[in-house]
Design a protein around this nucleic acid. Structure first.
Lengths: 130, 130, 130, 130
DNA sequence: GTGGTCTAGACCACA
DNA sequence: GTGGTCTAGACCACG
């Protein structure tokens, strides 16, 4: 779970996305507790308020609910909704990138080539044991 | 040439990217003048200061040079450098998106499917010469 | 006797109000013992510390007194004072609600209509002796 | 527009309610700008961050939209949705109060009496010229 | 220990 | 001047 403090996308939103991804990927399961505000803040080297803000967004999205003095928990619907959001976000991002590339005069072939290159560039830990 | 005022990437950077794309695509050619500050500002519904800032960046990058009192002109090396930048930006963006998707547990198949969908979704002006 | 953990009013205050209501309504009578800390805590699904805190408040208000090692008992003056407090609280709450409604531009007619609706909406246990 | 710093309901939520009421009452109209963060903060003697948080909630509710460097504006749908929310909030509050009153053993008659008293207690500026 | 709210003060992007 | 994000540090309610 990495945070890029120089990105234009706000830290708290990066945290939101990252937690959502974790839920979608099954790292955090329904009923389970998320890392506490302070734990997360220490881990990410970020102010607790920033984490709190991220958690607040997640709660308002219904992906998570909080109990004072106890912690934050993943809701049942949270998994499905996180997955849906991840998918649609991917599509939106790709579409945006492709649009930019096209307006820069890149051909579909070179865009597709770049995509395959990007896809192969990262090692895929998920499949190592097929 | 669209600007999204709600995007997290600053408007002036969106303008920079967009002009760079125009140069890469051959819409603006070496020696040609870019739209004036005010023209551009009116067209994008944006404050002239913001366009000014974008033009400064482009000039600093050597993609463009200014003739005082006349306007901004595309440099010869601007085309190549714009193209290179567009390509590497595409690769970086795609890599980032794919990394996010993977961390959300999406398989390579579904990522590729999303890519093809995105590729087909937008009208392809580039193919006019098939 | 319901506790709303998401309410902004602290749980221990909700308990205080609720016990006060019980005394006012004659459910707990002078000289009678209140449910023990643990009983109450189990019933309300709340931490014993929280109940403890509520009981402290009630004791400080003189509505209740404690016999060490035995339990909490309703005082004679507790009944009257609980009733008075319940009544004045009702008046204060209604006044606040009405003030908000007015500042939102609601007419007295629609406020009164809402009141009647609210009055009829809940089952009226109070009327059992009609 | 009054803020009660000792209330259990958070200041930022009081601001939300208050702005919503203002919109419902027609004090702020669609397309109009709300008081700036700093102005509002000075007026309410509150930290700008607190106002910002309130505005954020309003924006997420779709009652208001923000333009960086310009200000916050009421949306068209904002009026209707504010009115709806004010009404349902009134109903909920009254219902809660009545439920408490009943559980304290108050009769419907005395509750209604308290309501009328509360209704008359505040002067109604809105109707002074009928 | 947990989450929730608030302040003070800083820096950024934009008009 | 506007809104938006972040930090540091405080205090509260709850377990």
């Amino acid at each position: 779970m990495d945070i890029d403090p120089n990105s234009h996308v706000p830290i708290y939103e990066q945290i939101v996305d990252s937690v959502r991804a974790g839920i979608a990927a099954g790292i955090y399961r329904p009923g389970e507790m998320l890392p506490s505000l302070r734990t997360m803040a220490l881990e990410l080297v970020v102010n607790p308020n920033t984490v709190q803000r991220a958690y607040e967004v997640l709660e308002r999205e219904g992906i998570v609910y909080s109990r004072r003095g106890i912690g934050l928990f993943v809701t049942k619907q949270g998994v499905a909704s996180s997955r849906a959001k991840s998918k649609s976000a991917l599509l939106a991002n790709l579409s945006g990138d492709i649009a930019s590339a096209r307006s820069a005069g890149l051909t579909d072939e070179s865009i597709r080539a770049a995509f395959e290159k990007a896809l192969n560039r990262t090692a895929q830990q998920t499949r190592s044991k097929t």
